[in-house]
Each structure stands twice: as structure tokens, then as C-alpha cells.
């Protein structure tokens, strides 16, 4: 279970470039829940994900995973509990190393790494089995540099790597946004499949409203560093893209007003 309590983050404080990226976000993701975050550009959705991943430390607030306070853990320590797939397909793998070597590194996530052979016979077989299950024909290319693969193939492997050691939390940062439509659909399908099979707890940032409606069990909408909508349970089941569009419109209209005026006027629209 992921608990985000009242997180704030301001970038470049005290300068003209000051950005209040997160303004007191509180969010709890129950075990086995697949939640998506959507929001306009600059709404703070990626910042929130990075705050959980530990890319930076928040100004205030705390983050708990399964009751453990990880607020002050560095990024690499959090990786023991958290699996990640990045937006950039090149970010999750080492291009010049082989497919098998990349996966072998992921098989040791959160474990000690000694001077044992990385690709022993049994490890190779294990890798080949799981890669074959992807049905992408990559099992014959295990010794090729991973940089020779397409973005979609690399993202599928990154997903496999992030979930190889079962993470307590899986973070997906617009992980299909940089792919062509066909690969994006493939990776999205694989994502749903793995999450359902392993009953993972997931926080996914997405730009695609279609994905937000189809894939997760819960949709959180962010705007200006706050959570503005939270569709869960029955409310999520009835959710359509049109509903999300309307919600976006509401927050955009709110922006047209001065913050103080908005508090008075907006209730009349709603």
C-alpha cells in the first residue's frame, strides 16, 4: 500500500522561475490497486511520481510504502520496493549491453550483487523462458545489444525487468507515450496482463485518456499541484472519455478566474 501524505514541492523557490509543482497532495493507493494519474501539462503528475520514486526529496509531507516511512530514502534504496518504467524507452536499459545482461541486472534488484557469474546456465534458461512468453521473438536475440531493438521492444523488456522481482509498487511514467500507436497498444496490453497476473499495486501517469478509461481501476486527476478528481469503484466503472473532458473543462474554466473569485463562483457552475 502506498500512502502519500500532504506532499509539497516547490522548484526554484524565491526566483522568478518558482514553480509550486505539488501543493499538499494526499493520496492512498490500496494493495492490488491499479491507479492512473491524468492531468494537464504542468499539473504535477510526473512530479508526484518522481516524489514517490525518490528523484528528489519533498519540501514537506511524507511517503509510506506498506507502513514504512521512505520519505528520506534515496532513489536507489527505494528501488528495493519500487519497480519503474520510464517514458523514454532508452532510460530503463543499458543500450550497449545485451538483452540477457540487462535482464540479469534486473533479476538482482534489491539484492546484493557479488562476484558470481551474472549469466549462469540456469539464469539464462530462466531469462529465455520469460522472454519467450512475450511472444516478440526476442528469445533468439538474447546476446544482441539491447540498443538494436525498437522502442516498443525495449519498453516491453523494461516492463519485464521492473516486475521481475515483484515490486511492492510499480511506477509507470507515461511509458507508452514515446511509442508508435501499434507498439503503444502492445506495451499497454502487456502492462495490463502483467499487473493482473501478479496483482501489483500500480501508479501510472498517462496522457492518454483512452488508457485512463480502459486500463486502471482508479483514475486520479491532478491540476496545478493538487488532486482535483478521484474516480474509484463504481464511479470509475461508469467513467467515459467525455466525463474526463468535462472535468478538464471545469478546471480550465476555474483557471480563468482569480483564485479568490473562483471559490465563490465555481460552486454555481458545478
Amino acid at each position: 500500500m502506498l500512502e502519500i501524505r500532504n506532499i509539497t514541492k516547490t522548484f526554484f523557490p524565491g526566483t522568478v522561475n518558482e514553480v509550486r509543482a505539488l501543493r499538499g497532495v494526499t493520496l492512498t493507493i490500496e494493495d492490488g490497486c491499479f491507479a492512473a494519474i491524468i492531468g494537464t501539462n504542468g499539473s504535477g503528475k510526473s512530479t508526484l511520481l518522481n516524489a514517490v520514486a525518490g528523484t528528489f526529496l519533498p519540501d514537506e509531507g511524507s511517503v509510506f510504502i506498506d507502513g514504512t516511512d521512505i520519505t528520506h530514502w534515496p532513489e536507489h534504496k527505494r528501488a528495493r520496493l519500487v519497480g519503474r518504467v520510464f517514458q523514454n524507452p532508452f532510460a530503463g536499459t543499458a543500450a550497449e549491453m545485451t538483452i540477457a545482461e540487462n535482464i540479469a541486472i534486473a533479476m538482482k534488484r534489491g539484492k546484493s550483487r557479488g562476484v558470481g557469474q551474472a549469466l549462469s546456465r540456469s539464469v539464462r534458461d530462466e531469462i529465455a523462458d520469460k522472454v519467450r512468453a512475450l511472444n516478440m521473438g526476442l528469445e533468439n536475440r538474447l546476446d544482441n545489444p539491447i540498443g538494436t531493438l525498437s522502442g516498443g521492444q525495449r519498453q516491453a523488456l523494461t516492463l519485464l525487468m521492473a516486475t521481475w522481482v515483484r515490486p511492492k509498487l510499480l511506477l509507470l511514467d507515461e511509458h507508452t507515450a514515446a511509442l508508435d500507436p501499434k507498439s503503444a497498444a502492445q506495451v499497454a496490453a502487456l502492462t495490463s496482463e502483467i499487473i493482473a497476473r501478479d496483482k501489483l499495486t500500480v501508479l501510472m501517469v498517462t496522457h492518454s485518456m483512452q488508457q485512463a478509461v480502459q486500463m486502471p481501476g482508479r483514475v486520479v486527476m491532478m491540476h496545478a499541484g493538487n488532486v482535483v478528481e478521484d474516480y474509484a469503484g463504481e464511479r470509475k466503472k461508469g467513467l467515459r472519455i467525455a466525463d474526463l473532458m468535462r472535468a478538464f473543462d471545469r478546471v480550465r474554466r476555474r483557471d480563468l478566474f482569480d483564485a479568490a473569485v473562483a471559490n465563490i463562483v465555481v460552486p454555481q457552475y458545478a
Binding site: H76, A91, A95, M97, I105, K108, R113, G116
Partner: peptide
Amino acid sequence: LFLKTNLGTTMRAAGENPQMIRAQGVDN
């Protein structure tokens, strides 16, 4: 031989992609 061990492969990856290696739980 070292570059083919768990530690060695991790070091090679850290040289190429520090972000990846942090996400795999190692202080690059």
C-alpha cells in the same frame, strides 16, 4: 571474468546509464 559477474555487469550498466542502475536498486 569480473566484467561478466553480477557486480561487473552492474558497473558497466552504471557507466552507460546511471538512471537505470539507480532504478535497479544500486547506488551508481
